[in-house]
């Protein structure tokens, strides 16, 4: 990627950062749900720990760790999709698409915005978990960084699919930007092992990188070990899903150019 390409990507990121600088409700919204989730799961954990009469309960770690890590995937997907939606809402896509910004640079800019939104949104929740519930996300060890990256990548793969649908159906598909990953929560096995699912559902779960990340998280918390098999599978699935969704996105982008949808993406 050359300097001009990096500058174009920065142009897109700068546009969104300028928007956040002038819109505190947007910044608040970034942190609102992760913090709320942490408060709810913190109390659930405190209750369970009390029942078990064990404040250092491993269940506490799994619940809080699961909630925090799943937020990374959710915020990653939403950060990407909503940044694209911002361009639709501001009716600015026409200008973007007639600039020299390549589709892959658009995707890179949206990924950068997603990363920024994840950091700003999830960091307060991580801090909250540490201050009020004595749960340190990094207590899992350095492997947590790999978990975070794997979930970030999964969020981007799903977001590419959502953005493809936005290109196809316009803002009419925008509810997917908020809901699609919530729909995958039961199969991501955030709070329970894959083995809990009925046998016929397990292949669905195992096709998701998240299910392997959370199996890995439980191995780290319960056995103090790194489940290399799950970690490797998570990244392999991320690569496969990203490649597949990138193809879908590029195909949908080209179709939108044929249909004339880039001229008037809206409702």
């Amino acid at each position: 990627m050359n300097r001009a390409a990096l500058r174009r990507i920065w142009g897109l990121v700068y546009r969104h950062l300028a928007l956040y600088r002038r819109s505190w409700p947007r910044v608040l919204e970034l942190m609102y749900w992760p913090v709320l989730q942490m408060v709810v799961w913190g109390f659930v954990t405190a209750f369970l720990a009390g029942v078990q009469n064990n404040t250092a309960s491993l269940a506490a770690g799994m619940l809080l760790g699961g909630a925090l890590l799943w937020e990374v995937a959710l915020r990653s997907q939403m950060g990407f999709s909503i940044s694209f939606l911002e361009e639709i809402w501001s009716r600015n896509l026409g200008h973007i698409f007639v600039s020299p910004l390549r589709p892959r640079e658009l995707v890179a800019g949206l990924m950068a915005m997603s990363l920024i939104r994840v950091v700003v949104g999830v960091a307060p929740a991580v801090l909250l978990a540490w201050l009020f519930y004595a749960f340190g996300l990094f207590a899992m060890g350095p492997v947590v960084v790999a978990f975070l990256v794997a979930l970030l990548l999964m969020g981007w793969a799903v977001a590419l699919g959502v953005t493809s649908l936005l290109l196809r159906f316009g803002a009419g598909a925008e509810t997917l930007a908020w809901s699609v990953l919530f729909g995958l929560t039961p199969f991501a096995c955030v709070f329970y092992p894959v083995g809990v699912l009925p046998a016929w559902l397990q292949p669905v779960a195992l096709a998701l990188p998240a299910a392997h990340v959370f199996e890995g998280m439980r191995a780290a918390l319960l056995q103090g070990s790194i489940a290399w098999g799950h970690l490797g599978t998570a990244f392999a699935l991320d690569a496969a899903w990203l490649a597949a969704m990138a193809l879908v996105f590029m195909r949908q982008f080209q179709t939108a150019r044929v249909r004339g949808a880039l001229l008037n993406i809206g409702e």
Binding site: L19, R22, E86, N92
Partner: peptide, 27 residues
């Protein structure tokens, strides 16, 4: 380059920020 009254520029960011965005996009 292109201009149309039917394609807006982002409304919430300032004029200078808008121009800066496109200065970056056009290198």
């Amino acid at each position: 380059n292109f201009s149309s009254p039917y394609i807006a520029l982002p409304a919430r960011i300032s004029v200078a920020e808008n121009l800066r965005v496109y200065a970056h996009l056009y290198d």
